[in-house]
Nucleic acid binder design. Structure first.
Lengths: 225, 225
DNA sequence: GACTGTGAAGCCATTCACAGCT
DNA sequence: AGCTGTGAATGGCTTCACAGTC
């Protein structure tokens, strides 16, 4: 049981459990059951236990889980025990919004620098962060020790920017551009595609309207119980 | 084969295929093969064919698919033949950014109104759109005929706002708040959780660093071929 | 020869159901 | 009695491999 293959869905849920546990911790709740976690985040209790079981035994039978210790374990599993340095490329509407999003820092993702191709934006300060030109990206990425890059540029620039980030030593990319990007082996990419989410909703809505029973199966939108 | 259960992953990919086909269409490319689509969006050719096969036969053996007709079919399947009216609740950094995001309108999602609790924001015009107080939400939602609502408020307000949207007749919700929300039966919810994406990257990065072979399985980050 | 459509096989994730501990 | 941990069963998605068509 030491090093099984972990479903990505499990990792996503761990992240969500952790956020809930953090809130319980702040409220001073000492202990929680898989059923309570399940209800709070919209999954089944068996799912919660199975997800945790990939990594060890964290609970006490008949009692539940210690909120504080369980959260500490999950944070460690997720690699959040120490903070990550992040850079954002593309300071349009979305890039600016992400640069000032509090939720990232709260979970240990510290945005360290912003980049943009547009000379009119270079040199500005946004939310306390300087905007650099792309030519300084390699230098600055190394200087701030960034491991993760966020791409918020138009689709046609996404691949070149990804190449630039990879060349600078970035190891993970969060891509908001509506564009598939390819990266060499050890680098990880996650795509956040805003239109796609609306289109999946659209599909579900017209299916229902047409009186189709089944609709969608599982995932993103969680089952009620 | 008329009305099988469609995997959500298939719907997500259809949306991505469609975006690629739209670009080909603009370039005047008449015909495309499953292999070309596959390469462009980072999935396998068999996957492309299987996804399309859920809905019918759109190609010609030995030739491929007509770009224009295939895209029209996919748009119809996704419910994008006619535009959707959308409202955004919460005009902070993220809400404002989404309100001016061009990609939505381009795919037929027309943002019709903005809402915020903060009286200081009410009455402003953002990107040509008025910001209303929450008390006017039911009225305005009906007036503009909105079917989809986007939630960009802090976590503790997400559930009340969702309830408000549902009561106003909204049928689909895109939730950017880091919070599970529950809605009554026919209403659809999709959660876009920005921190979670970074945490999944974080997990993958520390796993690799520890020399673990397997890492993550499938999905969000697509296989190379 | 090139490419689609599809049953069958393989693989992966979730649910079930119960043994095991407190 | 209450709740965790887990093997077994189920269900679902993806890949394979090939027949069918142009």
């Amino acid at each position: 049981m030491k090093n099984p293959k972990i479903p990505e869905a499990t990792v996503v849920r761990l992240s969500i459990y952790s956020r809930y546990l953090t809130r319980l911790e702040q409220q001073g709740v000492p202990t929680v059951s898989s059923g309570e976690i399940a209800q709070a985040v919209g999954v089944s209790a068996a799912q919660v236990r199975k997800d945790l079981a990939y990594f060890g035994e964290f609970g006490t039978r008949g009692v539940g889980y210690g909120v504080k210790t369980l959260n500490a374990q999950i944070l460690k599993i997720l690699g959040l025990s120490t903070p990550w340095s992040v850079v954002v490329v593309g300071v349009g509407n979305l890039g600016s919004a992400l640069a000032s999003y509090r939720g990232f820092a709260r979970r240990g993702f510290l945005i360290r620098a912003l980049f943009d191709r547009d000379p009119a934006k270079v040199g500005r300060i946004l939310n306390g962060l300087p905007v650099y030109g792309l030519e300084r990206l390699p230098e600055v990425v190394r200087q701030v020790g960034a491991s993760i890059g966020v791409i918020c540029v138009p689709a046609d620039q996404a691949q070149p920017v990804a190449d630039l980030l990879v060349a600078a030593g970035i190891r993970g990319i969060l891509n908001f551009a509506p564009q598939y990007i390819s990266v060499p082996e050890p680098v990880l990419v996650r795509n956040v595609d805003l239109s796609v989410h609306l289109e999946v909703l659209s599909f579900g809505l017209v299916r229902r309207a047409e009186g189709e029973r089944p609709g969608l199966a599982a995932a993103g939108n969680r089952p009620e119980e």
